[in-house]
Amino acid sequence: MHYPESSFEDRMSTVDFRVGERAHIEVDSDICRSCTTKACVTACPANLFVPTGDGGILFNYEQCFECGTCYLLCDKEGAITWTYPDGGDGVAFRKG
């Protein structure tokens, strides 16, 4: 039984975010360039880690679940600087 899967953009459009001014997570692409696992790329449920042509990572914090997967998996010191968004900002689940 097959039915079309929605695009990832459609999927993320079902989630409410109050996007804050401050990037609560920062990724240092220079450090990522030497990373061979790129574990964050498959694991981030919001698909926010995009490999770039030069072996680095392009990251955008805006549609993040604040789950913690990326910082737990990343074993390169300093590649990810992880905080929660400022109070009231970030994901706001309607169902959860």
């Binding site: 039984m1 039915y3 929605s6 459609d10 999927r11 993320m12 079902t14 989630v15 449920p45 919001a46 679940f65 789950c67 913690g68 997967t69 737990l72 689940f93 309607r94 169902k95 959860g96």
Partner: peptide
């Protein structure tokens, strides 16, 4: 095959993740 008939046609209202 055991799950498809149960969720068929359901429209995604929220995608979510948590540890």
């Amino acid at each position: 095959p055991s799950i498809a008939p149960l969720v068929r046609g359901g429209e995604l209202v929220e995608y979510a993740a948590h540890l």
